[in-house]
Design a protein around this nucleic acid. Structure first.
Lengths: 164, 164
DNA sequence: AGTAAAGTGTTATATGATAACAGCTCAATT
DNA sequence: AATTGAGCTGTTATCATATAACACTTTACT
C-alpha cells in the first residue's frame, strides 16, 4: 500500500496522484471501520480537497462540482460533505484561512497543527507532541481543560525561502 | 498606575472598570509613542472591545455604536478602527471565533495565545514562551520561517469546571 | 415491498468582511 | 488666521463564508 508523504516530501515535486489515491483508500478504510457511508459526493469532495497540498475554500469546491461535474450543488451540499469528512477526521479546517485541507494521517484521530506558507500557500501538517505538551502544560497551569486546539503558523516554507 | 489583571484574576469577579480605564490609558501611551492618532471613534471601539474579557464580534460593536452612541456607522467604520487597533497591538483577532479582544499587554508587540472557554466564552490571553519555543523548534526542523502564529485553545476554564 | 433513517437538493438568509468613492477634520505650514 | 494636504470617517454596494428550514431521494433493514 502507498504511504502518505512526509511533510518534507510533500513540499517537493512528486507524483501527487498517489497522494490522492492513497487518501481515498485510507478514507474508505476509515469509513468502513466507523460504519459511515462514503458516498459518491463525499468521495468527490475529499478528492477535490486533496487536489493539492493547499487549503481549499468551500466555494472553490462548489464551483468545481458545478462546472466540472455538472452536479447541481448549493453551499449546503458542500458544507455537509465537509462536515462529514471532518467528523471522520479526513479533513481539517484551517480557521485562519476559512479553508479545508486533507488530513495527512486519518488513521488516528487528532487535530493537526499547520505550517502555512504565505508565498506558495502550501499547508504542512504536523502532529508535534512538543507543541501539544507545551500547550497542555500552560493550560494545566491555569486550571484549564483542553478540548480542542487551533495551531496555525504562517511564514515561509523551505522551498520558498530558497527561491527568494 | 493600575495594572492589567493576571489571567487568574481576570477570571474571578473583579472591578472591571479598572481593566477598561487601564486599557485606555495604556492605549493613549502606545499611540503617543507611535505618533498615531487615537481618535474618539478608535477609543470608543477599544472601550467596547474591553467591555468584557470575552471576544466581541465586529457587528456587535457596530450595533452598539449605532444604538447606544447614535453614531451612524457601517461595517467599514468598525473594521477600520479594528484594523488600526490591531496594527497598534491593542487588540487581537481570534480567528476561530471571528471576533476581537483587547490585548492584555500592549506595551510590547506580540501575538497572543488564547485559552477560550466553551462555556462562559472568556478568552484568557497567554504569551507563553514554552509554546512559542515548541513551535519555533518544529518550524525550524522543517526549514520553515515563522512570521505569525495563531494559537487558540478551546476547553473549559477553571471557574466553569468547578461550577460543573 | 414497506419503512425509517440518512443523505442530498433547493431556497432563502444569516454572518463576516472589503472595495470604491465622497466628504470631513485636524495638524502643519505659510 | 487662512491654506492645504494627509489621514480619518461616512456611505453605498458588494463579496465571501456559512447555516436554517423544508422537500425529495436513496439506502439499509425488516
Amino acid at each position: 500500500m502507498t504511504e502518505f508523504l512526509s511533510p518534507q516530501e510533500a513540499q517537493q515535486p512528486h507524483d501527487h496522484s498517489r497522494c490522492v489515491s492513497h487518501a481515498l483508500d485510507a478514507a474508505e478504510q476509515v469509513c468502513a471501520r466507523e460504519g459511515a457511508r462514503f458516498t459518491v459526493l463525499r468521495k468527490r469532495v475529499l478528492e477535490l480537497v486533496w487536489q493539492s497540498h493547499k487549503p481549499l475554500g468551500a466555494y472553490d469546491i462548489l464551483e468545481t462540482l458545478s462546472r466540472d461535474d455538472g452536479r447541481r450543488a448549493a453551499p449546503p451540499t458542500v458544507y455537509r460533505a465537509l462536515d462529514f469528512l471532518q467528523e471522520q477526521g479526513l479533513v481539517h479546517r484551517i480557521a485562519s484561512l476559512n479553508a479545508f485541507i486533507g488530513c495527512a494521517s486519518p488513521e488516528h484521530r487528532h487535530e493537526g497543527q499547520f505550517l502555512i506558507c504565505l508565498n506558495c500557500h502550501i499547508a504542512i501538517e504536523l502532529d508535534a507532541s512538543a507543541i501539544t505538551q507545551a500547550i497542555a502544560g500552560e493550560a494545566n497551569a491555569h486550571g484549564f481543560t483542553v478540548q480542542g486546539e487551533t495551531v496555525e503558523i504562517s511564514g515561509l516554507c523551505a522551498q520558498c525561502q530558497e527561491a527568494a
